[in-house]
Design a protein around this nucleic acid. Structure first.
Length: 828
RNA sequence: GCCCGGGUGGCGGAACGGUAGACGCAAUCGACUUAAAAUCGAUGGCCUUGACGGCAGUUGUGGGUUCGACUCCCACCCCGGGCACCA
């Protein structure tokens, strides 16, 4: 018999050529008989092209490709496109270091990504490829910005913003980590007052929260978004400073504790703080305190453990419920960004207010007592955060349960015009200005007489100018391109200057999935018809690190664009799957650790099919997976065994065609292998539907082990069916070698073949191994026929030799029968 | 501190409340080979020379529900992630 050698490189390049030449994975927007319901949009997050793809990319695209292939085999038309999130800081930083234009380094990286994606055999519709840095793409990013601008959803304001001194640019709140460091470079972030562009995502807080109910996303991702949006219900209550006749509204979630407010605190950034003390004896001390507070890093200021500090303003406000004059303070534990930048302090029922009152020796007044009297030991412990009944709240409210009082007090405030029910969110507006070169220019012209004027649509795109020096100097490098900056006002034709900030790259990636539906449209961002064909994305796949930023922004874009009449759906991603990280020796792969496994070297060594299968076989795809070179070899051996067995079967002389001459009339090993094959069909299909790729691959391994074991004892046709089916089932994971095997055994193309069907009668066997337990412990196994009734099974069990041994002369007190499974005898 | 995940052999991991450890890796032994690699086969707690057979324990810890618990409930320990002075 000839020597059969599995040669992945020859096999893979052959099939890649076929798919490229025949444009196998391209789909048109014109649907045929099946209509929209037979379409599936399978999408993996687009990569940021920097250097070469890493193992995480391989996992993401191998995973998405398996889903795409499975959907095609189920008869759906699958849109499975690819693009590049090509703007961004790393390419620009590289340019600063080397002088190489970001466009060139990005292009080089894109070529590398393209080459590798092809070498992995990912079934991409290359006709729809896009990159966000191409003018033909960002033209429409600019168009969307202008649509938002016209709708009042893009606006400019001076704000205290997070500034990274290393990257010399502003960051979004979301891009600053818990320690107050830049997400990208790790430098401590500073606060600066600058005019910046914002998108009004906060208008959508309620809908972004509520619509989470409508989508099939992992629970943890939904929870993260909910926490980030941070909805709180409460009331806005007005405290009046009589001396200066100024009303200060505050937000509170606990209006039931309003009678316990014994002082009032403002954030150091509050614009009125200095005004309130101007010319008073407190001025100096307050100035000093504010200066210190503003120079604190986020890290220092955010530390909950830090003792509370603050100073008096020497003013008072009136508590609206009881008319009390309570003193005003400034303290750094109050945040300007949340609520109104000022709070009522209830030290008896709030931990932070309590700590502050203790530190400064301020009065503490309890207004809630635990219900049921004073018996509880912890009743005396303050602050008390639990529920109870009101005390010290006047005749109208004393004795009322606090939850009930909460509503009553808000109604009272509303009647008196001193407050009203209110909802607050932690979510802030999205700061999109970046003082950097390599991004989408903001299409606005600043005119001395007309203000901020949108660039007319017909003048889009506003293209990035060529510049000499990418080094950031605290303003956008674009500002140096004088010829580009100086322009005329589209409104009055007078001299004007272009906006020099570029957009956060998250803007680019907030709508790319729409463009894939109609990527070559020259006259619009998309044709609504094209979107109706594909959107929303049926299955979105990516890393959990995008749980908040990208996924929130994309949702916001869809809702805003839907409101503007451009979309007829609200949510972009119907289902989401978040994949786990790939680690090496338990640690995150990184250049500094020197434990980076390059996909190119793996593919070079064992081929793409092995690499793809292994990364999905190693464990559940939503969990982290540790890369093991030895494990890869195991999968490689498996594919080699499959291929050799198929080559051997082919040599034995098989029939051709996809009709297999196998039937339930078979007996012995043939029947056993036939059954195992149908078991595998059933198992793999079920596993694919629940993303259990590891057990799906294991099932094919089991089938192959049986093929191997029975290779000399079954008919050639039985073997042909088992092996062709193995290839068919494994195709979503190892497309090249499976296409090869399937063609050898059937002459047909596996990707055109329907997903195999498991016959019910072959899934059931006429006899099974009955488990015999005594007191819940396994004592024996006997063969039982499938039709046997409970009494018959009980008898079988009692006759089993080892059951008898454990029965002795004991009394059977209970008999449990689970037909098809087991009998459990309970004895005493 | 709050909110999510997760603790199963030497390792990665399987397991609708019903035979724990599928599948793979590593290991050991054997076949083929002059040899090695590749390949194929076997083994995997304890007792038994060995097979047959038998026996016990076991899914982070302690309790509970159940004929029966990796799986459900309660308490605790450890690991990973997210949020964190949000009034």
């Amino acid at each position: 018999m000839a020597e059969h050698v599995y040669d992945p490189h020859a096999i893979e390049s052959r099939w890649q050529r076929v798919w490229a030449q025949e444009r196998t994975w391209e789909v048109s927007n014109e649907h045929d008989a099946g209509g929209r319901s037979s379409n599936a949009y399978i999408l993996e997050m687009l990569p940021y092209p920097s250097g070469e793809p890493h193992i995480g990319h391989l996992k993401c695209y191998a995973l998405g490709d398996a889903i795409a292939h499975f959907n095609r085999r189920l008869g759906r038309r699958v849109l499975h496109p690819m693009g590049y999130d090509a703007f961004g800081l790393p390419a620009e930083n590289h340019a600063i270091k080397t002088g190489e234009h970001p466009r060139d380094s990005t292009a080089a990286s894109i070529v590398s990504f393209q080459r590798q994606f092809r070498s992995w055999g990912i079934s991409i519709d290359w006709s729809r490829e896009l990159a966000t840095h191409e003018p033909s793409y960002y033209r429409w990013t600019q168009w969307i910005f202008l649509e938002l601008f016209r709708a009042g959803l893009a606006y400019r304001k001076e704000a205290a913003v997070k500034w990274c001194p290393n990257d010399q640019t502003v960051l979004a709140n979301e891009q600053v980590d818990a320690e107050g460091r830049c997400e990208r470079c790790g430098h401590l972030v500073e606060v600066r007052q600058l005019e910046q562009w914002f998108l009004r995502i906060t208008d959508y807080a309620e809908r972004l929260l509520g619509d989470l109910e409508e989508i099939e996303w992992p629970g943890n991702v939904k929870t993260m978004q909910r926490n980030w949006i941070g909805r709180s219900e409460g009331a806005e209550v007005t405290f009046r400073c009589e001396q200066l006749a100024i009303d200060y509204p505050v937000f509170t979630t606990r209006p039931d504790t309003l009678f316990g407010a014994t002082f009032f605190v403002m954030a150091p950034e509050h614009p009125d703080v200095l005004r309130l003390v101007e010319g008073t004896e407190h001025e100096h001390e307050v100035h000093e305190y504010v200066n210190v507070a503003l120079n604190e890093t986020n890290e220092e200021r955010g530390n909950v453990e830090k003792p509370k500090t603050g100073v008096a303003l020497g003013r008072t406000v009136t508590n609206p419920v009881n008319g009390e004059q309570i003193p005003m303070f400034v303290a750094d534990y109050v945040l300007m960004e949340y609520g109104t930048g000022a709070i009522m302090a209830v030290p008896a029922h709030d931990e932070r207010d309590h700590a502050f009152a203790k530190a400064l020796g301020l009065p503490i007044r309890r207004v809630i007592e635990p219900a049921g009297g004073t018996d509880a030991a912890d009743a005396d412990v303050l602050p008390f955060m639990g529920d109870g009944v009101l005390v010290n709240c006047g005749a109208d409210f004393d004795g009322m349960p606090n939850r009930e009082a909460l509503g009553e007090i808000v109604r009272w405030l509303d009647r008196e015009g001193k407050g009203h029910a209110s909802v607050n969110y932690k979510l802030r507006d999205w700061l999109i200005s970046r003082q950097r070169y390599w991004g989408t220019p903001i299409p606005i012209v600043h005119c001395p007489s007309c203000g901020a004027v949108p660039v007319p649509y017909e003048q889009l795109p506003v293209e990035l100018p060529e510049i000499e020096d990418y080094t950031p100097k605290g303003r956008s490098p674009l500002a140096a391109a004088e010829e580009w900056v100086n322009t005329t006002c589209p409104s009055c034709a007078g001299a004007a200057r272009r906006e020099t900030d570029t957009m956060d790259t998250f803007v680019d990636s907030s709508w790319y999935f729409l463009r894939y539906c109609d990527p070559h449209n020259q006259t619009a961002a998309w044709d609504p018809e094209a979107l109706r064909e594909w959107m929303p994305v049926d299955q979105y796949i990516g890393g959990v690190e995008h749980a908040i930023l990208h996924l929130m922004y994309a949702r916001f874009f869809c809702k805003a664009l839907a409101d503007l009449g451009h979309l007829d759906f609200q949510e972009p991603f119907q289902a989401l799957f978040t994949q786990g990280m790939v680690t090496k020796d338990g640690a995150k792969m990184s250049k500094s650790r020197g434990n980076v496994v390059s996909p190119a070297s793996i593919v070079e060594r064992v081929g793409a099919d092995t690499a793809r299968c292994y990364i999905l076989f190693v464990g559940p795809p939503d969990q982290d997976a540790d890369w093991s070179d030895a494990g890869v070899e195991g999968v490689h051996r498996f594919l080699g065994r499959l291929w050799r067995l198929a080559a051997e079967a082919e040599e034995r002389g098989v029939k051709s065609g996809e009709q297999f001459d196998v039937s339930a009339e078979m007996q012995g090993d043939d029947l056993a292998l036939l059954r195992k094959t149908h078991w595998a069909i059933d198992k793999v299909g079920g596993d694919l539907r629940r993303f259990a790729f590891n057990t799906a691959i294991a099932a094919v391994m089991e089938l192959l082990n049986d093929c191997s074991r029975l290779r000399d004892s079954v008919e050639a046709e039985t073997m042909r069916f088992a092996l062709a089916t193995s290839a068919s089932l494994l195709f979503p994971f190892a497309p090249h070698v499976c296409a090869d095997i399937y063609e050898r055994l059937t002459g047909a193309r596996v990707w055109e073949a329907a997903w195999p069907h498991a016959e019910d009668e072959l899934l059931e066997s006429d006899a099974y191994e009955l488990v015999c337990q005594v007191n819940g412990k396994l004592r024996d196994r006997v063969m039982a026929s499938a039709g046997a009734g409970p009494d018959e099974l009980k008898e079988l069990c009692k006759q089993a030799p080892n059951v008898q041994a454990h029965l002795d002369d004991k009394e059977i007190v209970k008999e449990i029968v689970v037909p098809g499974k087991l009998v459990n005898l309970v004895v005493r």
